[in-house]
Design a protein around this nucleic acid. Structure first.
Lengths: 206, 206
DNA sequence: CGCAAGATTGACCGCCCTCAATTGATGTGG
DNA sequence: CCACATCAATTGAGGGCGGTCAATCTTGCG
C-alpha cells in the first residue's frame, strides 16, 4: 500500500487542493467544504472511509451537481483509465479517504465488482432525492445522511447540517424553498435543530 | 463465449421474461416494452449493444425508476457478486444485449474499469434529466436518446418516441405535464412529430 | 366491433420559483 | 476590539409552472 502514498507526492495539480487534507498513515482527512480534487487534475481513486462527498461535473454554466458518494463508495475510479479526474469532489461532511488500490489480481477484481455493484445503487438513491415533494426530498436526504454516518439504531438519528446551497443542488430545489421546508419540518416536529449545526431526526430513515 | 449461452439456459425465473428475446449468435434482441429481467431472479451481466434500458427497483409503493442504461453500458453486474439481479430492466427502445463476460483476467479487469468509469457518467447524465424546467428536461432526454441510438451528425436527429409514462418517470414529471410540454415544443418548432412514433429534433443534442 | 391502455385537453389551485430585502455568521485588517 | 466585507440563511410578496382530478379522444389488438 505504501506505493500509493509515495506516488501521491508527485501529483502536479494536487498540491493546493489536497493541502487541506491531513495525512494519517495512508488515510487523508478533509474538513467540511474542502475540495478533494478537481476535474482534469491527475490523481488516483479513493474509497470513502467516513463522511459524504459531493461530485460535480462541468456544465454549460459552471459546475453542476453530478452525484453523491457515501462510506464504502469509490470516487475517481476513472483515473485508472484516463489518469485524470472527470469530476470535482467536495467534502460535504468531515471526510476520511483511503487510497483505493488492491494487491493481487483477484483482490482487484473483487474490489472492482463491489464498486460497480454499489454504483448502481448510488444512482437510484441519488435519483430518489430528486423526486416527490420538497419535504419528501429533504426527509430522504436526511435519512440518506443518517445512514451515511452510520447512526446508532438505539437512539434517534442525529446528523450534521449541510449548507442549504448543497441541499438545494442535491434535491433540485431552490435555497429559499429548502429554508422554508426545513422550517416546516421543524414546526411539525419531524426534525429538531440542535446546537453546533446538528439536526435530530424524529423519524426512522427508511 | 459459448459458455455464456449454455449457462443461460438454466436460469429458473428467466424463462418467461426472456421469452420475448430472440437469440442470434450470442446476442439477444428485445422489442420495446419487453422485460429483460426482474429484480430477484438469477442471471448474469449484459452489455447494451443497441437500444435503451430502464432500470427500476422495488420501492415502498411499487417499482420506482432507478436509472437508464445506454449503448455500451453494463447492466446486472451485481449478479457477479450476489447471483441475483437487484433491479428490474425494461427495454425502452428495440434492444440488443450481449453477455458480458471476458476471457482473461486482464480483459476482465479492463472491462470492469471501463464499466465503472461509465457508471459515474451515467449517474450525472440521468440526474440532469431531473433538473430544470419541464421543457428542459424533455429536451435533454430527447438529446440523450439521440446520442443513445447514435444519430447521424449530417442529418437532423430523428428518435423513436417513448411512452409518456416512461418519460414522466424518468424526468420526474406527471404524464399530463409531459403531454402538454411536448405539444409546446412541437408548436415552437423545436421538435417535429413524424409517422410511426418518431420525433425529429430541430436542435442539436448537446 | 368492443375492450383496454395510452394520450390529450380543460379547469383549478397549490407548491415552488423568482426577486428583493433583511438578518445572522464568519473572517480579516486596521 | 471594533469596523467592515463576505457569505449564508431567513422572510416576505407575487406570480407562474406543474400537480391533480376528470372527461374525452386515440390507438392497438383480440
Amino acid at each position: 500500500m505504501d506505493e500509493c502514498i509515495t506516488a501521491d507526492a508527485n501529483r502536479p495539480v494536487a498540491a493546493s487542493a489536497v493541502l487541506g487534507g491531513t495525512a494519517i498513515t495512508s488515510r487523508i482527512a478533509f474538513e467540511r467544504g474542502a475540495t478533494v480534487f478537481v476535474a482534469g487534475m491527475l490523481g488516483r481513486p479513493w474509497r470513502v472511509v467516513e463522511g459524504l462527498v459531493r461530485l460535480d461535473r462541468e456544465g454549460l454554466n459552471g459546475p453542476e451537481f453530478g452525484g453523491l458518494a457515501r462510506v464504502g463508495d469509490v470516487i475517481g475510479a476513472e483515473t485508472l483509465m484516463f489518469d485524470r479526474y472527470t469530476y470535482t469532489a467536495v467534502a460535504l461532511l468531515p471526510l476520511t479517504l483511503e487510497p483505493w488500490c488492491h494487491g493481487t489480481a483477484i483482490e482487484r477484481e473483487h474490489g472492482l465488482l463491489l464498486a460497480l455493484a454499489r454504483s448502481e445503487r448510488r444512482m437510484a438513491d441519488v435519483l430518489a432525492l430528486r423526486g416527490g415533494r420538497a419535504a419528501e426530498r429533504i426527509r430522504r436526504l436526511f435519512g440518506y445522511i443518517a445512514e451515511a454516518i452510520g447512526y446508532r439504531d438505539a437512539q434517534t438519528p442525529c446528523i450534521p447540517m449541510l449548507r442549504l446551497r448543497d441541499i438545494a443542488d442535491i434535491t433540485g430545489l431552490q435555497v429559499e424553498t429548502v429554508s422554508r421546508t426545513i422550517s416546516q419540518l421543524s414546526d411539525h416536529g419531524e426534525i429538531s435543530p440542535l446546537a453546533r449545526r446538528q439536526v435530530q431526526l424524529n423519524y426512522s430513515p427508511d
